[in-house]
Write a protein that binds this DNA or RNA. Structure first.
Length: 838
DNA sequence: ATAGGGTTAG
């Protein structure tokens, strides 16, 4: 008697528990798929009974909401609710929008009330011995699907503690969770257990193990397991192929597909989805076409996901037209289809088409998700489409996606790269408090660096450290340019030490940025040391080091390095040619410069840009070959800008060719009427030729336009940058000491015969326009450092002739090495001489 | 009744 009672109770619990769980999940499914009602017609998926059940449940629930009918769930309802009737009720429900709204509102409340916790409660109410394994599995699976692998795993542990051993379903699910959380060794020990208990013989378990090892980057173990399988089905092949692809063995994946066909296993739609990324990765377009053809023949293309992966494949193989054709022919397009197509156009530089596509997507009623908006934002970023970007931002706010971290990062990046750092910062501030995503910080810091706001970049980096957000290699690569543009050796060293701590020495972006920073901070030898140690030097590494030599006036070294680069079979690009041409112009290597300039177009098929022309003009002008330089400008394929002409004008000044100077100046004034430097330059030229009337005229024009002079110099004293504004020698707290030092230096210069010849009473004007802030910086450096220590100063404009002479003098009189970085290059003063030959 | 494989982004 008691046994029967016991059995009855068990059955009741089992029924009840199962029913509850079922109801929970189906309701859940319903809530999240209200939009999908018509899809749940069972005549569309006759072989999938669970979807039918679900559809049935939805119907009952819909009826209950609309008509208040009884919600009782009876087994024999199932057949009656299939097919036509289902369609009818759905139509009825769709007829009245108000009612639908009501349903949706109710769903909202249910969404809050019913969650996995409730399911767990129901589950807990079932006494342990009565819990069917099925209930465990379902609950574990739901946790896994909800993206909570840890809960799933802890349930698994509970299960083991209760003495329940699990079945193949259990292990597939657990392995899936272990792939995303937990350690390799846990998975491996489970593997051991599965071998001992014989569960590995189940194909699904073997397949789950393959997926586990692949995701845990143990592709060798996965392959070994795969090879040893007694029985393989199409899922096994698909799993191992996608494992290979995600572990950079795309070629092997293609080989495996061939093997699979040879062993007589038919590909399914998933195979197409697995193997298309392999074609994309290898650029194996014709194989991709074959796969496409196969999927047309087997009608897999009709599945939206297959189409999506084909779009992606064509896009990544560089055939965006074919991608467009696949997109055009699709029966049903999901948000993924639109997103893939948008990214394809973006990759191809067809930004406007990407934007149109996004608009069409919305017109056709496809709600964009986080992926879709991220990819359209990327199109705006690369295309510099700030206004479209703002429109998208509005949409994002309305959809409620702004807090998604991927979306927010893309927004920050878009604003920063389109030149609106303030907008970027607004988005950053909105999310920075809720997330400590490194990418967010990196994007913002990089945005500041790219918009020439190095101080902001550095202070944000400091803030990040203070909040103990862990930086990664990208962070380092984003801050270093800020240090470089400030010539801030100390900050650069600090960041370098972070890089060492994190372990970025194999990251080539970081290495290149470090070398660049050291070169631009005047410590070329550090840059060279890193360069020599670097194993995989790429084009950027070589270019950085060539530019470094060039900046420091080591023309010969630059030439040697350029040759070494080509000997290492690395083809120069426009930037490396610019570096080598600058090296030639800084070191006065005319013949070499002309040779490189010619080689650029003839050998390497690179069209010279304005900067390349500038180097040539500079080279010729400095050498006094002024007519040649003028003819060169005339022959330029691109429109010469004012800075090209200014270089020639400087040449005219140095070689006292007033006539040509007038001709050139005419052109410059047209191009840049606001820049006072040009007027001053011409006035100086007249003064030197003793043409006083003309001089006066230009000084007047100069004074009329004199407005914002923005020159400044800075120096680092004990880790802090001290800034001196041109023409303002009173602002600094130590200005008194500085002035008296400068005065005594001035006297000594005069005594030693170093003072400049007063050039026809005109030097004063030049003094005013320069502002000489670099002198104050040098003086402060001398006052605040130990004897014979190098003084490193940076200036954001070109150093004037007087200050240059001043620095030469100080380097001799105080026996100090002075490194002065101006807007053009580095000047290294040692014992009264400078490396720039000026 | 429950499972194993895929696509879109920084």
């Amino acid at each position: 008697m008691a046994g029967e009672n016991e059995r009855g109770r068990r059955e009741k619990w089992q029924r009840l528990g199962v029913q509850w769980l079922k109801m929970y999940f189906q309701l859940n499914h319903f809530i999240y798929n209200v939009e999908d009602w018509p899809i749940i017609r069972d005549d569309q998926c006759p072989q999938q009974s669970n979807r039918v059940d679900c559809g049935m449940f939805v119907l009952k629930y819909g009826e209950h909401l609309i008509n208040g009918t009884n919600m009782d769930f009876q087994q024999n309802d199932i057949p009656r609710f299939r097919g036509e009737y289902a369609v009818k009720v759905i139509r009825k429900a769709k007829e009245s929008e108000n009612r639908i709204k009501k349903i949706q509102e109710e769903c909202e409340t249910y969404k809050q009330q019913i969650d996995l916790g409730v399911a767990r409660q129901v589950f807990d109410e079932i006494p342990n011995p009565d819990r069917p394994i099925f209930a465990w599995n379902v609950l574990m699976n739901e946790h896994a699907k909800a993206g909570d692998p840890d809960r799933c795993l802890s349930l698994f542990k509970d299960m083991l503690e209760h003495g329940i051993r699990g079945n193949p379903h259990t292990f597939s699910c657990v392995l899936k969770c272990l792939a995303s959380s937990g350690s390799v060794s846990e998975g491996a020990s489970l593997h051991g257990y599965l071998v001992k208990s014989g569960f590995v013989a189940y194909i699904a378990v073997g397949n789950a193990l393959i997926a586990f090892y692949s995701k845990r980057r143990r592709i060798d173990s996965a392959l070994c397991l795969f090879e040893g399988m007694l029985e393989r089905d199409v899922v096994s092949w698909n799993s191992i192929m996608s494992g290979c692809i995600s572990n950079n063995l795309a070629e092997k994946a293609i080989g495996l597909l061939v093997k699979m066909r040879l062993s007589g296993i038919d590909a399914d739609a998933m195979t197409v989805m697995c193997v298309s990324p392999a074609c994309a990765r290898t650029g194996f377009l014709c194989f991709g076409r074959a796969v496409h053809g196969y999927s047309i023949k087997s009608r897999f293309v009709e599945e939206a996901n297959v189409g999506n992966s084909l779009i992606d494949m064509y896009g990544k193989c560089g055939d965006s037209d074919s991608a467009g054709r696949v997109f055009q022919c699709m029966h049903r397009r999901t948000a993924v289809s639109w997103t893939s197509m948008i990214s394809t156009y973006t990759r191809d530089g067809r930004f406007d088409e990407a934007v149109d596509l996004f608009k069409r997507m919305e017109e056709e009623g496809v709600q964009p998700d986080a992926f879709a908006v991220s990819s359209i934002l990327r199109a705006c970023t690369l295309g510099g489409l700030l206004e479209h970007g703002r429109d998208v931002h509005d949409r994002i706010i309305r959809i409620g996606l702004e807090s998604d971290r991927f979306v927010a990062n893309a927004l920050i990046d878009m604003y920063a790269k389109c030149g609106s750092v303030t907008d970027a910062r607004v988005v950053f501030d909105r999310i920075a408090s809720t997330t400590n995503d490194v990418v967010t910080w990196n994007t913002m810091i990089g945005g500041y660096s790219k918009n020439s706001l190095p101080n902001e970049a550095l202070s944000l980096f400091g803030e990040m450290m203070r909040l103990q957000v862990k930086p990664n290699c990208v962070t380092i690569a984003c801050v270093l340019p800020a240090c470089a543009s400030l010539s801030s050796l100390e900050r650069g060293r600090e960041v370098h030490s972070h890089a060492l701590r994190i372990g970025c020495y194999s990251d080539k972006y970081v290495m290149n940025a470090l070398m660049d920073m050291y070169a631009k901070s005047g410590a070329l030898h550090h840059a060279c040391a890193l360069f020599d140690r670097m194993e995989a030097k790429d084009l950027i590494s070589w270019t950085v080091i060539i530019a470094g030599y060039s900046m420091h006036g080591h023309g010969g070294q630059a030439l040697m390095t350029f040759r070494a680069m080509r000997a290492n079979a690395i083809e120069p690009n426009a930037a490396s040619f610019l570096a080598i041409l600058r090296a030639c112009s800084h070191s006065g290597l005319i013949k070499e410069g002309q040779k490189f300039f010619a080689a650029m177009l003839e050998e390497c098929k690179i069209e010279p840009e304005t900067d390349h022309y500038s180097c040539m003009v500079d080279l010729l002008s400095r050498a006094g070959r002024l007519t040649e330089a003028y003819r060169f400008i005339e022959s330029m394929a691109v429109k010469p800008n004012s800075s090209v002409c200014t270089l020639l004008l400087r040449g005219c000044q140095a070689h006292q060719d007033v006539k040509l100077a007038e001709k050139v100046a005419e052109r410059i004034f047209e191009l840049e009427p606001e820049n006072v430097e040009h007027y001053m330059l011409l006035a100086n030229i007249y003064a030197e030729a003793e043409r006083w009337n003309a001089t006066k005229k230009f000084i007047e024009r100069l004074n009329q336009r004199k407005g914002s002079s923005k020159g400044c110099s800075w120096i680092e004293i004990r880790g802090k940058a001290q800034v001196f504004i041109d023409g303002d020698d009173k602002a600094h707290p130590e200005s008194k000491k500085i002035r008296s030092l400068l005065e005594s230096l001035g006297l000594k210069m005069a005594e030693d015969g170093w003072l400049m010849k007063r050039r026809h009473g005109f030097v004063k004007e030049e003094q005013e326009s320069c502002g000489h802030s670099e002198r104050s910086a040098i003086a402060l450096g001398i006052l605040n450092s130990r004897q014979r220590a190098t003084v490193r100063v940076a200036k954001n404009t070109r150093v004037c002739g007087e200050c240059h002479k001043f620095a030469k003098f100080v380097s001799k009189s105080h026996q100090r090495e002075i490194v002065l970085r101006d807007s053009e290059r580095f000047h290294r003063f040692v014992d009264g001489r400078c490396c720039c030959r000026r």
